[in-house]
Design a protein around this nucleic acid. Structure first.
Lengths: 189, 189
DNA sequence: AATGATTGTTGAACAGTGGTCAATAAGGAG
DNA sequence: CTCCTTATTGACCACTGTTCAACAATCATT
């Protein structure tokens, strides 16, 4: 039974997440095993369970980062100096771009049914959605109903989900995204 | 080594699919094992592999049935005597109802990323979508663009996907579905 | 009726999974 | 130089999808 490593290479949450992120982005949630991650790091799989209780917890830790990322992207767009209508368009496109650029993370954020993972997801989506909804509401001169904003979200979600499934990058569907957003804006304003 | 069963109880594709359907509807694709299905049937799991090459093939066989079901639902609505506008509404609502009533099947039809399953899926979705698109096109007096119809589909897909994730039945979101459909129709016509 | 070929079922085996846990050693504190 | 906490290991468990040699039941042919 070989012992633990010396302190300069002690395993950390960060290290695990970094390794997991890479594998995860390449293969998706379902196709990354704890043993793979451990191997990548040069540790035994048991070690990971010292730092994370679960596969689910490990992946959700990464997801939290990405909800923040989404919030930032949105906030950035809001701070730009653009015509209101154009800004609204950018917000919706920004959501799609985020979803298709971080497909694997979008998957856990909004797609995974796995109860174990979902147990960790509570505030994340709600908070992000609230920021999204508020932005859209402002950019519509407060003329849009909450239900309509919700419909917009669901419709963007549909776009991302569909093209995520066929593993397409954002660039490849930029034009379609634009057209979709225009379609949605037509009934929003 | 116990031998095979006598002919009155010989295993068939139908029998396997029936058992699989039940388990699958209850637990979703990822949480049904071949051994479970075999147990349900009173056979060893190896026997299933005589009739289906794969778990993926088994489940896709069921999915094909459900694409036909979706087509029928659509065709039924089209045959009803309704005002055009109302009929269009029913088509869109019909899609959502189908998706939320057969969540597990919708999952494989439109959601699963698994390459193995996707290898079997080729014509199914395309054919169904074409029928859907044609219907919508007709009911709009041929005034809607193909891109808009595609956007409608993606938006319905988003609705189903979202509420599927939270395992809600159609009845519980009927009103929301209606509101979503109205939102979409507003920019379609 | 006997023989042979085909068809269908079994269960052991394989490589993989997530997760647990006793054993063990490294490093710090006294 | 002890004691204690902390981190790591790897055997182990129960499970997964899949393969396949062994074998029996059935059908076809002589």
């Amino acid at each position: 039974m070989s012992p633990r490593k010396s302190v300069q290479q002690e395993l950390t949450r960060e290290m695990i997440m970094d390794a997991a992120r890479d594998l995860f982005v390449q293969n998706g949630y379902g196709h990354v095993s704890m043993r793979q991650i451990a191997k990548e790091l040069g540790y035994s799989h048991g070690a990971i369970y010292y730092h994370f209780t679960n596969k689910a917890e490990l992946f959700y830790a990464m997801v939290q980062e990405h909800f923040h990322m989404l919030d930032h992207i949105l906030a950035n767009i809001m701070e730009q100096e653009l015509e209101q209508h154009e800004k609204l368009k950018q917000v919706l496109l920004g959501f799609i771009e985020f979803g298709l650029t971080h497909q694997s993370h979008y998957e856990i954020m909004f797609l995974i049914k796995d109860e174990e993972v979902r147990n960790f997801i509570n505030e994340g989506p709600n908070k992000s959605y609230e920021a999204f909804a508020k932005s859209v509401y402002m950019l519509c001169d407060k003329k849009a109903s909450l239900q309509d904003i919700w419909s917009v979200f669901l419709s963007l979600h549909g776009f991302v989900t569909h093209y995520s499934r066929h593993v397409v990058g954002y660039d490849e569907v930029k034009d379609l995204a634009r057209s979709h957003v225009n379609f949605l804006l037509r009934s929003l304003i």
